[in-house]
Design a protein around this nucleic acid. Structure first.
Length: 117
DNA sequence: AAGTTGACTATTT
DNA sequence: AAAATAGCCAACT
C-alpha cells in the first residue's frame, strides 16, 4: 500500500528533512520546523535533533532560530561555540541581525507557502 | 526499566 | 516588561 513518503522515518529524520527545505537567506523557528515535520508542539525535539547533528549533515541547522528571532545558546558551557558561527553563516546568506542580535522574522522568517501579495 | 535532560514555545503571574 | 510554569517528545544515564 502506498504510504506517505515519511513512513518508516523517525520523527527526527522528518525534522531534518523539514530543515533541508529551508532556502538560503531565510530562517525558521523551531516550532515551525516541528509543525512542518508533523510534530506540532515538539519544538524541543527539533532542537535536540539539531544538537546531535553531525557537521557532515547537509542540514542547514543554522537557519533554525528561536521564535523571537534570536539564536539558540547551546545550553552547556561552551555556549557561544556554534552560536557565533551561526550568526556569521546567516549573515553570509543575506540575513541581517538587529542591534539586539535578533533576526527580523517579519523579513527573513521563511514561509512554506509564501502568499503572493 | 525508570528518571533526568534538553539548540523550545506559549501562557500566566 | 520580565520571570516563572506547564507542555512536548526523544535521547541519554
Amino acid at each position: 500500500m502506498v504510504r506517505s513518503a515519511d513512513a518508516g522515518r523517525s520523527s527526527s529524520e522528518r525534522i531534518l528533512d523539514a530543515v533541508r527545505r529551508v532556502p538560503a537567506g531565510k530562517v525558521v523557528s523551531y516550532g515551525k520546523v516541528a509543525r512542518l515535520a508533523g510534530l506540532p508542539g515538539a519544538a524541543r525535539q527539533v532542537g535536540y535533533a539539531m544538537a546531535r547533528l553531525d557537521g557532515e549533515s547537509d542540514v542547514p541547522w543554522q537557519r533554525v532560530v528561536r521564535s523571537d528571532g534570536s539564536l539558540a545558546p547551546r545550553g552547556g558551557g561552551l555556549a557561544s561555540c556554534g552560536m557565533k558561527e551561526q550568526r556569521r553563516l546567516l549573515e553570509g546568506e543575506g540575513v541581517g541581525f538587529g542591534a539586539d542580535d535578533r533576526i527580523d522574522l517579519a523579513r527573513y522568517g521563511w514561509r512554506p507557502e509564501p502568499p503572493p501579495e
